[in-house]
Structure formats: C-alpha cells, structure tokens
C-alpha cells in the first residue's frame, strides 16, 4: 500500500540576516491513510518550517517528497496552489478567521479559491456538513467576534475539512486555548482520521501527543 506522503532526507537552510542556518538536516517521514502523527520539539526546532514544506507553502532544499507516488519535491507554485486546495487542510495556532465574514463564509472561503466551482447551494450544503462535523452548525451565522476561542478554532477546522482533504496539518492548534477546550479540539482533529484522513499534529502538550498513533520528536533538524 502506497503511503499518503513520504519524505526522505528533506533539508532546509534558512538565510536570515545572519549566516545561513540549517533548520532541517534530513527529515524522513511517512504517513499512511488514517494515521495520526504527533511532532514534538523545542521552540525554534523547525516544526513549523517542516509543516510549511509538507503543506507546500515552501519547497525543500534537498531530499524527496512523494505525495502518493507523485514526486512533488520541486513543484511550480501554480500546481502547488491546486494541491493545497485539493489535498491539504491547515489548522494554525492563531485561527486566522476573517472578522468581516460569518462562520459559514469563513468556511466557504476554502471553496471560493478559484480551484473549481461549487454552486451556492452546493457550497452551503458542504459548509454546513463541515460545521456539523466539528459540532458548531448552530453557529453558522455568527461572526468570529461572537465566538469563543474553542469555537473559532473549530470553525478553522471546518474550513480545513470542507474540501475533504487527504492530509490535515495542524501547527500548535491548542496553543491559544485552555486545557479543556484544547482536548476537545484535539479530539475533533483526531476523529478526522476515522474517515481515512492523515493527520500531522505539532504540539508541545505530551497528553495531546499521546492521543496520536505515533509520536515523533524534532531535534537537531532530524525526526526521531
């Protein structure tokens, strides 16, 4: 069975104001359908950098990245945008909801991105289904300002799920939430894997990590 995604020997060197720093020094990672992976690591160890490579926000300097059996190590930006839309769902520490749009419109944003077209009725149905999956369909008409942190993060998760991605990437999604709400959010994310979605969760919380199928640690640019 082919893996959902397979990273081998991924390297990334960042060139800031100072001398270049190697953040990733040969990362190997394989994720299968329905699997969940927790990535732990000190702050600044390169977890977000790794997720941004997996999510095609950025490209690695070296190594190979296979999505299914397709080599996407050096993908042109236009195709990367299409893959981000079709294959990935993203959840961030900050929720990144647009404050002038309702929960529903925020979720629909992932459908209104120029990649294919769904009619207003189809969009509505899919958005409501996604909001229902995270348990907040009743808040569809609310704007972010009227939602609690946990509710906002669940809107963000619905936005990540609405296109039914194959891989869900979550970068410290509970970082801004209290423990109880954090548990709820992690449970919502984990339940997505029941339908065959792969999940990579970056977290500092051992308890949350323990709920994942595998726990990996990023240290000195290598996953172990």
């Amino acid at each position: 069975m082919t893996a959902l995604l397979q990273l081998s020997g991924i390297t990334k060197t960042l060139t800031g104001q100072d001398e270049p720093r190697t953040i990733l020094a040969g990362v190997d990672l394989t994720v299968h359908s329905g699997q969940s992976v927790a990535i732990l690591g000190r702050s600044g160890s390169g977890k977000s950098t790794l997720l941004s490579l997996i999510g095609l926000f950025d490209r690695p300097d070296g190594g190979t990245y296979l999505l299914g059996d397709r080599d996407i190590t050096r993908l042109p930006e236009r195709k990367a945008a299409a893959l981000r839309s079709a294959e990935f769902g993203f959840v961030f520490q900050r929720f990144f909801l647009l404050k002038h749009l309702t929960a529903m419109q925020n979720v629909a944003m992932a459908l209104v991105n120029g990649q294919g077209w769904a009619s207003r009725r189809q969009r509505r149905a899919r958005v409501l289904a996604a909001l229902d999956r995270v348990g907040i369909a009743h808040l569809a008409k609310h704007k972010p300002a009227r939602l609690s942190g946990g509710e906002q993060q669940r809107v963000a998760i619905a936005r990540a799920l609405v296109r039914e991605p194959r891989i869900l990437l979550a970068d410290e999604p509970t970082g801004a939430l209290d423990a109880e709400t954090g548990n709820l959010v992690v449970e919502v994310l984990r339940s997505a894997t029941d339908q065959g979605c792969g999940l990579i969760l970056v977290t500092h919380d051992q308890d949350h990590a323990a709920k994942m199928g595998r726990v990996l640690r990023l240290r000195d640019g290598v996953l172990a």
Binding site: S85, F96, L98, M109, N113
Partner: peptide, 16 residues
C-alpha cells in the same frame, strides 16, 4: 497580509 496568506494557503493562486 494575513487574509491574503490564508487565501493562498487554502489554494488561491498568486495570479488570481
């Protein structure tokens, strides 16, 4: 900036 980065993250192309 955040809105545009987010839109790109969910698959909107640069050109669009």
């Amino acid at each position: 900036v955040e809105e545009f980065a987010l839109r790109r993250a969910v698959g909107t192309s640069r050109l669009l």
